[in-house]
Design a binder for these strands. Structure first.
Lengths: 237, 237
DNA sequence: GTGCGGTCTCGCACAGTGTGCGAGTAACCT
DNA sequence: AGGTTACTCGCACACTGTGCGAGACCGCAC
């Protein structure tokens, strides 16, 4: 009799393995976010995806905000900074890693600056970065300033990039379609914004793969910043 | 008889002048945002603040998102770039102006990257910036790259700054209180993040006005970036 | 004056949100 | 066997953005 009830019981809650876990929830949330975007993530939908009730999640996670923090740290976990590397290499690895992570999870731009990024993954990444700068000759507040600048540039360069890509996706076209669609608008506005118009005109003709074009732009600014930082190394005056 | 009914009619809808206008709505929205933050802005509350029904707003504004775009462009309108200025001065004016505008309206960080920033104010600011760079010796894609880098750094430096200030405000303390509150936590984590701990240790003692400390950090990175860009001027090789 | 069309306001309703609460269930410890 | 602990979940609440259709006011043509 006992094994039967046990089997029956197992049967009843079998499909959801052995209950939820925080990691499982975070993983499912990321899948949902990757698939449908930030607005589509609701506790009810997430619960349904896990075969659980919506409010069951609140045992493992205090808030939706807390869940978003966890998810965000998972994003930061995708950036790996080599330990003990040259500060320029560490900065490049960090910058490209962070840019890649955000591009891979475009919904994250809606979370940057809204949820505090103090999770372990974010901290280890910055720790490595700080370590490499401190070991590379920067000293005192210069370390913080320089690290801050690298993070700032990376974030600020990536956010508009992703924002642009998001707009394209939500418009339902691809990059070429978008450019074709806004072409006339730009022509019309060119008289009001002469310098922007000038720049746009010089674009038509130079066809570059947009993805690599964006990479080039990112690289340009990053290298400029790193060069500028290098001249501020204490012993290199 | 007519003037009487007219007066009576006026009486009835007098308090809201002569109806809503788009500018009025945007202004009220900004007041509400400044006073209570991004989460507190709802169409119903905004309507009530204007003495109107919530759905009346939808005559003047298609969406809440569209309203947020309008509001965001108002923020960008606070950054003024002098026309015909040296490119370094233009960049500084832009950077400090944008930083100031965002700091003045902290809720805007929740909108950057979420709403497209293509309003007239944003465009004039970038137009001026592009113009000064193009006139300052940059050429071809270098103009875009350099302008992009300046915008990127400014955004990326300001967002975490405001995010930090927002967290403090929502915690209900001031900066000193916050630092005191997280002190023990940092001590505990210092073993896991040695470089960060090292940096934190060197802080205790050096007391700087936090506001000017942040300004110094911002200035450091900005100048480093501008120096790096200067070495990339075509004729300065 | 009478009607008409345009501009604008707004109440209602709908589907959906995050989440507090309390009841319920299962597993383990004594 | 009884009790504690870990966990799940249905219900309910207050609140969201917004489509719809009914009106209110206006100036203009007849």
């Amino acid at each position: 009799m006992k094994p039967f009830t046990s089997v029956w019981t197992r049967e009843r809650k079998g499909p959801r393995e052995q209950g939820l876990s925080r990691d499982q929830i975070v993983r499912a949330a990321m899948e949902l976010l990757d698939a449908e975007g930030l607005d589509a993530l609701s506790m009810r939908k997430l619960g349904a995806k896990l075969g659980a009730g919506a409010t069951s999640l609140y045992w493992h996670v205090a808030n939706k905000d807390e869940l978003l923090e966890l998810v965000m740290d998972e994003v930061y976990g995708k950036v790996t900074v080599p330990e003990g590397a040259d500060w320029r290499h560490a900065a490049s690895a960090f910058a490209y890693g962070l840019r890649g992570a955000i591009l891979e999870h475009p919904w994250s731009v809606g979370l940057i600056g809204v949820v505090p990024g103090l999770g372990p993954n974010a901290l280890t990444a910055s720790d490595r970065l700080v370590g490499s700068f401190a070991g590379g000759g920067f000293a005192g507040t210069g370390v913080d300033y320089a690290v801050n600048a690298v993070i700032a540039y990376t974030l600020g360069a990536t956010i508009p990039e992703v924002s642009w890509l998001n707009a394209i996706k939500s418009a339902g076209t691809d990059i070429a379609g978008m450019q074709a669609a806004i072409g006339p608008t730009i022509e019309r506005l060119a008289s009001d914004y002469p310098s922007l118009g000038e720049r746009y005109k010089s674009y038509t003709g130079t066809d570059f793969d947009p993805t690599t074009a964006r990479r080039l732009a990112f690289d340009f600014g990053l290298l400029a910043l790193l060069d500028g930082l290098e001249t501020r190394l204490p012993h290199s005056t």
